[in-house]
Design a protein around this nucleic acid. Structure first.
Lengths: 188, 188
DNA sequence: AGCATATGCCAACACCTGTTGACTTTTGCC
DNA sequence: GGCAAAAGTCAACAGGTGTTGGCATATGCT
C-alpha cells in the first residue's frame, strides 16, 4: 500500500462533499464548508480534487447501474421499477445530490439523463416496446417528480408515505407508461 | 396618476428578475445581472425592493388561482388538470421560476406547496374524494416531475412532446390518482 | 420662474468565494 | 539518525456578491 493517510482524507472530503452538495445544492455548498465538515484545510480539497467542478464530478460519480430487467414480465416491470428506485433513493444520498444539483449544474443533468435515457431505454428496447425513449422519459418524469416532492420539497403527505404505499401508487403509473399503447392524436 | 416613470422601471426590474431567476435559479441570478437586463443601476433594485430576498418574493408572487373544478366530473378531471397545468406552465415563466428556485429557496417551496396543498386539495374535498391531501400530493409529483423534465432538465423526448400528446399521457395518470381507491396494504 | 421631490447614477463598503503559493510538519525509507 | 517526499497549515490573492450613502439630474407643482 503506497499511501494510506491520504486516502482516508480523500474519502472524508468526498463524503462531506456528497452531504453538502445534497443538502445545499451546487452553488451554496462552499469548499470551505465541505473542508470544515471533513476537518481539514480548504487547500487540501484543491490539492486532491483540483477544483470545485472536479470535486463535484467526483462526488456525483457512482454506479447507477440498473439491475437486468430483461426477464421481468412487462406487466410487473412497473412495480419492480418503483420499488427499485425507491430503495436506491433511500440507500444513500447519491441520487439526492444529483437531483438537487441538476437544476443548476449541467454535469448533473447529463448524468441524470444517462440513467434514464441511456440505461432504462435500452432495457425497454429489449422488451420490444415501441417508443422506448418516450416511455423512459415518462417514467423519469414520475420518478423524479415523486423524489422531488418527497426528498427535496418535503411535501407533507408524500414525504411521510410508507414505502409500500408508494410502490402501490406509483407502480401502476409506471406500468401504464411502459405497456399502454401510445396515444393516437385526432389532430395537431 | 401620482407616479409614472418609477412604475415603468419597477416593472422592468420585476420582468428581468423573473427571467433571471427562472433561467439561473436563486443563487446564480445576481442583482447586478438583473439590473443590467433592465438597463438600470443595481442600486435602483435595492431602492425599490429592499433586498434580493424581497425582490424574489415579489418576482414569485402572482395569481396562481386554479379555476373552479367543482363541477367537472371526476372522471375527466385528470385530463382537465393536465391541460390546465400545461397551459399555465407555457403561458409565462412564473411557474418555472418557482420550480427552479424551490430547490434552494424555502419561500419558493412554501409558495409551490400552497398551489397544490392549499388549492388543489380543497377542490378535491368538494368532490368528496377520500385522502385529498395524498391525492393532491400525487398529482403534484407527476405534474412537477413532468415540468422538471420538460422545462428544467430538457430531457429530449419530453421537452419536445406536442401538447396534446402530453395531455393524452398525463391525463389518465392524474385521473387515476384522483379516482382510484386508495391502495390497501397487506402488511407493513 | 423656482423649488421640493422623485428618480437615477456612481463609488465604495464589508464580506465571501474559489484558488494559489510558500512554509511547516509528518511520514517512511536508507 | 538523516533525508526526501508526502501531507497538512497558513495567509493572501483577485474577483464577485449584496448593500449603502452621497451626489447629480429630472420631474412636477405653485
Amino acid at each position: 500500500m503506497a499511501e494510506k493517510k491520504s486516502d482516508r482524507t480523500r474519502a472524508a472530503i468526498l463524503a462531506a462533499a456528497r452531504e453538502r452538495f445534497g443538502a445545499d445544492g451546487y452553488e451554496r455548498a462552499t469548499i470551505r464548508a465541505i473542508a470544515a465538515d471533513a476537518a481539514i484545510d480548504p487547500a487540501m480539497v484543491m490539492r486532491y480534487y483540483g477544483s470545485k467542478e472536479k470535486l463535484f464530478a467526483a462526488a456525483a460519480e457512482f454506479d447507477i447501474r440498473l439491475p437486468d430487467f430483461g426477464d421481468v414480465p412487462l406487466e410487473s416491470l412497473g412495480e419492480a421499477l418503483a420499488r427499485h428506485f425507491l430503495e436506491r433513493w433511500e440507500a444513500d444520498d447519491s441520487l439526492r445530490v444529483l437531483l438537487r444539483t441538476a437544476v443548476t449544474n449541467e454535469v448533473a443533468v447529463e448524468r441524470m439523463r444517462s440513467i434514464f435515457a441511456a440505461q432504462l431505454a435500452p432495457t425497454l428496447r429489449v422488451q420490444a416496446v415501441d417508443q422506448p425513449d418516450v416511455r423512459a422519459g415518462l417514467v423519469a418524469s414520475q420518478v423524479l417528480g415523486f423524489a422531488l416532492c418527497r426528498y427535496i420539497l418535503g411535501f407533507p403527505p408524500i414525504a411521510t408515505m410508507p414505502d409500500d404505499e408508494v410502490v402501490a401508487w406509483l407502480g401502476p403509473t409506471l406500468a401504464r407508461y411502459l405497456t399502454s399503447p401510445a396515444p393516437t392524436l385526432n389532430q395537431a
